[in-house]
Design a protein around this nucleic acid. Structure first.
Ligand SMILES: [Zn+2]
Ligand SMILES: [Zn+2]
Ligand SMILES: [Zn+2]
Ligand SMILES: [Zn+2]
Lengths: 144, 144
DNA sequence: AGCCGAATGTTATATCATAACATGCGGGCT
DNA sequence: AGCCCGCATGTTATGATATAACATTCGGCT
């Protein structure tokens, strides 16, 4: 979740580069994978990537997948809504972003019952996607 | 979640040490924090701690908190049930483990709808707990 | 031009996690 | 007993992820 906080200044150059690289990737990318892809465009150090990611996350344009230490561009434009659910295939690495009112509502309810002032949430489901499940179990995306 | 897989051999020495250290701690501990606390009992290297943690997690006796890179002893004895929800105070660092049938059921439903064969789940709510919220906002546990 | 705040560039280092290989110990077998 | 084997353990080294700290540049403003 991580609610969008403030005004929309235009994205800076580095933020744009990082966001576009994420949007173009079929799978979540780690900070160093981003750095590799952006060396040509002038990025040199991890700090540059992490800074851009921080700002993009603060705006809700990028999400961090905690179980992967990786990042995705937000596909929805939810940016202010509640908890998001990620569905992650451990096989092909693809991640889908969902929102669900039952989950969102109940998580807010649980936080309230627990006396927690909710700042952010992370919900990630891991498993094998339908496509990977159909190809002989154990096949990995490189093998196909 | 991360379902418990197999038979119960007795815990090994290192596993016992790690589990007891976690059970005694008021907050989740990282692997290196565990290592520090267990040097006296003979643990020397990160790999020893990570190995014990892996086995304890496989049995459902320990959970990993993905947003903290830290570990907690399981308080419930759920060990085979569905998704668990962690409620984490960013202030005092305490984490509570909950299970909720609405969340559990709906997450399984979402996975099924998405065509995902669910292997494990991670659900973490972050915020400020009631105790920390009452003490002048911004107070941290060291300060009190 | 001179100032200021924000973004950027750069170097170094902290933190988290695993690979790879050696050693030791116990249980079953001959 | 002596051997073998599986498995936990010990140990060293390295990989992967993330941040601290400080110098530099850029753009708007007066
Ligand atoms: Zn999103
Ligand atoms: Zn897949
Ligand atoms: Zn548990
Ligand atoms: Zn608290």
């Amino acid at each position: 979740m991580t609610v969008a906080p403030t005004a929309d200044a235009p994205l800076t150059r580095n933020q744009t580069l990082v966001l576009e690289a994420l949007a173009a990737a079929p799978v979540p990318l780690g900070a160093y994978a981003l750095l590799d892809r952006l060396r040509d465009q002038g990025l040199r150090a991890p700090a540059q990537v992490y800074r851009a990611l921080d700002r993009l996350q603060a705006r809700g344009l990028v999400h961090r997948l905690e179980t992967l230490n990786a990042f995705v561009a937000c596909r929805e434009a939810h940016r202010a809504e509640g908890p998001v659910v990620f569905v992650i295939c451990e096989h092909c690495g693809r991640a889908r972003e969902l929102t669900d009112e039952v989950i969102g509502g109940r998580l807010r309810g649980l936080a309230a019952e627990a006396g927690l002032a909710l700042h952010s949430s992370s919900v990630e489901l891991r498993g094998t996607c339908a496509a990977c499940g159909r190809t002989a179990a154990g096949t990995d995306p490189e093998t196909r």
